[in-house]
Deep mutational scan, measured.
Amino acid sequence: LNLKQAKEEAIKELVDAGIAEKYIKLIANAKTVEGVWTLKDEILTFTV
């Protein structure tokens, strides 16, 4: 999975969960695949 694909998957998951745009922007700015997954997990843990 490359960075672009990771971001697309994570953003789709966050949108489906009804997460606010400000958190989705954090994913869009992530620099690594690991960073994308870590941010996604943290956002889902603390906002859902």
Rank of each mutant, 00 (worst) to 15 (best):
L1G: 07
N2M: 13
N2C: 06
N2I: 12
L3R: 00
K4W: 12
K4R: 11
K4S: 10
Q5V: 08
Q5F: 09
A6L: 05
A6T: 04
K7Y: 05
K7R: 08
K7C: 03
K7N: 01
K7Q: 08
K7E: 01
E8F: 08
E8K: 10
E9F: 10
A10L: 05
A10F: 02
A10W: 02
I11K: 05
I11A: 05
I11E: 04
K12R: 12
K12W: 06
E13Y: 09
E13F: 09
L14V: 02
L14R: 00
L14F: 04
V15T: 12
V15Y: 12
D16F: 11
D16C: 07
D16V: 09
A17D: 02
A17L: 14
G18R: 05
G18Y: 04
I19C: 06
I19W: 04
A20Q: 10
E21T: 09
E21C: 06
K22N: 07
K22R: 11
Y23F: 15
Y23S: 02
Y23G: 01
I24N: 02
I24W: 14
K25R: 11
K25P: 05
L26N: 03
L26R: 05
L26S: 04
I27V: 09
I27L: 07
A28Q: 15
A28K: 11
N29A: 12
N29W: 08
N29M: 11
A30T: 04
A30D: 01
K31H: 10
K31R: 07
T32N: 04
T32A: 02
T32M: 02
V33H: 03
E34F: 06
G35E: 15
G35P: 00
G35T: 09
W37I: 11
W37K: 14
T38A: 15
L39S: 03
L39Y: 04
L39E: 01
L39A: 05
L39K: 04
K40D: 00
K40H: 07
K40G: 01
K40C: 06
D41R: 10
D41Y: 14
E42Q: 14
E42T: 10
E42A: 15
E42K: 14
I43S: 01
I43C: 03
L44E: 03
L44R: 03
L44H: 03
T45V: 08
T45L: 14
F46D: 08
F46L: 15
T47I: 12
T47M: 15
T47W: 15
T47Q: 13
V48T: 13
V48N: 14
V48D: 11
V48Y: 06
